Amino acid sequence: MGTKQKKRKKFSKDQWLAIGFLTPSIVLIIIFVYGFISWTGYVSLSNWNTIVPDFSFAGLKNYLFLFSDFRFQSDLRNMLFFTILFIGAVILLGLCLAILLDKKIKGESFFRNIFLFPMALSFVVTGVVWQWLLNPSTGVNNFLKTFGIEPLWYTDTNILAGFQWGQIEFGVPVAIISIVIASAWQMTGFALAMYLAGLRGIPEELREAARMDGASELQIYRKIILPQLRPITASVVIMMAHISLKIFDLIYAMTGPGANFVTDVPGLYMFETTFRGNYYAHGAAIAIVMLLAVAIFIVPYLWNNRRADS
């Protein structure tokens, strides 16, 4: 009898209620997330590259086509350098601004709201605004022309420190810097909020003890503050990498693919390939490559967090 009572007590009424509430969400996630990912993977291995569905097996043909395609090679180059520059800019600006606000300056709330405001805008709005600001014939350039400076911004097709790699010149496209400026302007507030919360969570006693031991402010930040902020930096890197690897709307609104695809990214290529060209298998292959790129960042992070919690 005791064993039976124990078995009956395995799930209480509240637990069954929780399972009941969670089940619909789990079913929907399985269908609309993992089900659609599986469907996309299946389509990427098919011959469906016309408006009429063709599910005959094509193997890796679509992937081999992509990695030999000049545009997709350019997209991978742009995605790589955009991700590096974007993450670096957001971390650097967010950390510096957080350190300044942590000094409890006058009007801190006002400045904090100003820095966080861009996050309230959509990437489409940001793209349109910065498209005007950095347009070679309008915006900021009208002011710069008075000093004899006429930057091309996102219309510049030059490649910095480039070398030939396959069909493309491998280096930092100058036009990508314009995209980095616009996207970092919008997302720096996120890093600012994260770092400011981290700084406020570090006990003041640690800094005072270091000062009493003769440490300079630079040494305090280098030896005490920054190591304490490593988990926050990791979170910011993961979030920004997730955004940068699948970015579409800002570039679509701001520049489009650009001349010689200098501002093109896989998300934009996938949209045009799938919904304008009706090359569904090619578009699905691009989507799977983007998924794998995001997984490279996300999966190790989640795995480490799970190990730390266990």
Rank of each mutant, 00 (worst) to 15 (best):
T3M: 12
T3I: 13
K10M: 14
F11N: 10
F11M: 13
Q15H: 05
A18Y: 09
G20D: 08
P24Y: 10
I29P: 06
I30R: 12
F36M: 13
W39E: 12
T40W: 01
T40E: 03
Y42Q: 12
L45P: 01
F57Q: 08
K61P: 00
Y63F: 15
L64C: 07
L64G: 08
L64T: 14
D69K: 07
D69I: 08
Q73W: 09
Q73R: 14
L76I: 15
N78S: 05
L80W: 13
F82I: 02
L85R: 03
L85I: 04
A89K: 04
L92T: 13
L93V: 08
G94T: 02
L97Y: 15
A98R: 14
I99K: 15
I99R: 13
L100Y: 14
K104A: 03
I105K: 08
G107A: 00
I114L: 15
F115C: 00
F115E: 01
A120Q: 07
S122K: 11
N135K: 06
F147M: 10
G148S: 05
P151T: 06
W153M: 07
Y154K: 14
G162F: 12
Q167W: 02
V174Q: 11
S178I: 00
A182F: 09
W185N: 09
M187C: 03
A193D: 05
L196Q: 06
R200T: 07
R200Y: 06
E205K: 11
E217F: 05
L218M: 14
Y221L: 13
K223F: 09
I224N: 01
I225P: 00
L229P: 01
I238K: 05
S244W: 07
L245R: 07
K246C: 00
F248L: 12
Y252Q: 14
T255V: 02
P257H: 09
A259Q: 15
N260S: 14
F261I: 03
P266A: 01
F275H: 09
G277N: 05
L292Y: 14
P300E: 04
W303P: 00
N304E: 11
S310R: 12
